[in-house]
Design a protein around this nucleic acid. Structure first.
Lengths: 335, 335
DNA sequence: AAAAAGTATGTAAACGTTTACGGAACTTTT
DNA sequence: AAAAGTTCCGTAAACGTTTACATACTTTTT
């Protein structure tokens, strides 16, 4: 038997839909006997209210849309958890989407979220996104937007990000202090601001130590491990290979680790390695990975808090917020 | 400016909503000039059709609901990817939810999915779920259901699972062949059939080799690493500790690895370790983890295929399907 | 005994969209 | 010049739910 509506129940009991609706909502002005009958029948028929009907009628859907580049990445899945928990506590649902870093998908997802009339959107912008009209459209439609981890200045929205410059600086500084001479950096896609900032912080650390960065020691890669693995191999096969690598993320560091193992390079003796993110597997690697930590779960929570505050704020001119998380050096044994 | 509807466009152009709708759908029977005006205005106002209105009107929502215990788990996130890709190719959307292995959440999620009128549901049942009425309700409502990885015989739905008995057997067999004598098993929550089957397969392997399993060598844990870490410590601190451990999953194996490192036990010399899942980090661990592989991505694809075939099948009596994936031994260096 | 208050229910509109049906205004065919 | 066909558009109902308003009946108050 297909799904049953309030109308069906009304017909079966020979009463009006209004009464059924009132009974289901436990309103004061409905006969206890009628209420009993309605609730009993509704239960027996597995009645569940149509969220479409309600969404259509009410202005609010109590749903927020969440867009991540990929779900298959511990950093993002932890953010999802933090965000979801805060949202649920406040009675909001979360619709999760992956852009796979594909611009067209991202645009489509935003269209869908608008179509679904979500109350707000949280996004970590995909690395191939260069045109931000789809995101700025949200402002025109009065839909609050929060960007986490990967934000962009051209977009009107809250920002929940890391101090990537400082993170990069700390990584560089630590490698220098450990006495390394030939320090390389495997950076991420140069379209991402986060990538550029980590790189700039890293360069600043070298500069402050009066060390120069050889051009061949600065390379770019994607966050996919296969790519970073190949990039690391190239780097380590240079005539004069580096004795330290700062990887733009732990995932990239994993690629380096793999490459080093293939080349029988000992870490940290022959090669120092530092990552960025602080994945849960870090301590279990051999050697345990030194890294710069990002508080992913907390970032998710904070994103939800800011977004919900905006959504629930009665006055339209809720100010744009920027929350910057401080990255911390996590010393293990890979340096 | 808030979101605009077809009615607003109609009013602005002094035409009827029907004409606007036709224009937006590029119907043949609308004046090219009218069509142009409608499209132009719709674009200028960022019009996006309300999925609620459409969902209400049409019987089908082209959405499938996906429920996983946790997203923060590579096994599940790969399944999500496989499922989503197939679904998208066929024009379906996926709504992702996490039960966190909490029964009440799972029930609530199912209620929500029914309310959202999804065309089908894919679920990996949470480990605390003992009452299956919420799932069998879906059959009453004619909503196709597919269970992946964690299925239950009391539930009416398709099954996409592993041959866990065989997986357990292979793990046991391999440890025996490698010459280990004191073989232990860290099993998962005993409520899960998957756990029981792996354990039974493992026991069968021992039996076939005329080896006995000491009671203290069979322990249970959850899939959370902190738990498995403690469980492993207990096991390895026995007066006569095991010389081999079959962990019910790679995540649990990570806990063992951590414990072994703390106790300065060398793997594989002093302790052989075999996991189950074949996580991507496996090869990067030290030593690289020997494991039983599950084809997570393919399982996700297959789940989507079966579910969609059911959804699109015109005859109501689409038969229940069971697809069993064969686990493979992946030999690395931890044994 | 009339007025007021309370109780239980029904009516109808609204949310945004699609679509079957019908009709007016043309154009073409005979 | 009537008949037939074509082109373009409007009307209205339907989907499921909520809620302001109306209504009818009963009970209480004066």
């Amino acid at each position: 038997m297909p799904q049953v509506s309030i109308k069906d129940i009304a017909r079966m009991l020979n009463i009006s839909v209004a009464t059924v609706s009132r009974a289901l909502h436990d309103r004061y002005d409905v006969n206890p006997e009628t209420k009993r009958k309605v609730l009993e029948l509704a239960d027996r028929l597995n009645y569940r209210p149509s969220s479409h009907a309600i969404g259509l009628l009410k202005k609010r859907t109590h749903t927020i849309g969440l867009v991540v580049p990929e779900i298959d990445n511990q950093f993002f899945s932890e953010i999802i958890n933090g965000l979801e928990n805060v949202a649920y506590q406040q009675g909001y649902n979360v619709m999760i989407f992956q852009s796979q870093n594909i611009y067209e998908r991202e645009v489509k997802i935003i269209d869908q979220l608008i179509g679904a009339r979500v109350d707000g959107v949280a996004i970590s912008i995909g690395s191939s996104t260069q045109d931000f009209r789809h995101l700025n459209m949200l402002k025109d439609l009065d839909i609050p937007l929060a960007m986490f981890d990967r934000a962009n200045d051209q977009v009107y929205g809250h920002k929940i990000i890391n101090d990537n410059f400082e993170g990069g600086y700390k990584a560089g500084e630590f490698l220098i202090k450990s006495g390394r001479q030939r320090i390389a950096h495997i950076a991420g896609p140069s379209t991402l601001k986060l990538t550029r900032l980590r790189m700039q912080g890293f360069k600043a650390a070298l500069r402050d130590a009066q060390m120069e960065l050889r051009p061949e020691y600065l390379v770019h890669t994607t966050f996919r491990m296969e790519d970073s693995h190949q990039t690391a191999l190239n780097l380590l096969n240079l005539p004069e290979p580096p004795d330290a690598i700062f990887a733009v993320s732990d995932y990239v560091a994993l690629g380096v680790l793999k490459a080093a193992r293939e080349l029988n390079l000992h870490i940290p003796a022959e090669l120092a390695l530092i990552g960025f993110t602080n994945l849960a597997v870090g301590p279990l690697l051999e050697p345990p990975l030194t890294t710069i930590s990002q508080q992913s779960y907390e970032m998710g929570q904070e994103t939800a808090r800011i977004l919900l505050e905006n959504i629930e704020s009665p006055n339209k001119d809720f100010k744009l917020q920027t929350r910057i998380f401080k990255p911390e050096l996590v010393v293990r044994n890979s340096v």
